[in-house]
Structure formats: C-alpha cells, structure tokens
Amino acid sequence: MVSLPFCGEGKEVRVREIKGGKRALERLSSLGIYPGAKLEVLNTKGGPVLVKVGESRIGLGFGIASKVFVEEER
C-alpha cells in the first residue's frame, strides 16, 4: 500500500484506505474516490496529483492526495 503521490505514473490502482478527516473523506468520495474505487494515476510530479476516475480527471493537491492509500492493480 502506498500513498497516491508516490505511485508510478500511468499505473492503475485501487483505493484501499483514506486516512483523513470527515471532510476530506466526504469530498473525495463524492468525486468517486472511495475505498474500492479504481483509479488511473496520470501525473504525480511537478504540481498536484492527477488521477483518472472513470472518464473524469481529478487534480488533487499533495496534502489531500497523500491521505489516499492505494494498491497497484497490475
């Protein structure tokens, strides 16, 4: 399990756990990022983390992205 900013770019991952407060949790889950969700990591360096959830692309600042712990799918 690694936190999102430390994932390899281009990897498909599954969210395992979100270690954040209620606020962060609610925000992320309303954007489709919840334990069990599949993400594609597009961009991790040089700015916010960019992930693809379904067809939508979501930018997450480092702080909030590092609360999302994921496991590589493949």
Binding site: L31, P48, L50, S56, R57, I58, G59, L60, G61, G63
Partner: peptide, 8 residues
C-alpha cells in the same frame, strides 16, 4: 487543499 475536476 487543491481538489478540482479537469474537464475534457
């Protein structure tokens, strides 16, 4: 925190 959807 930055949280924003980037549209196509």
């Amino acid at each position: 925190a930055f949280v924003m959807e980037l549209p196509p």
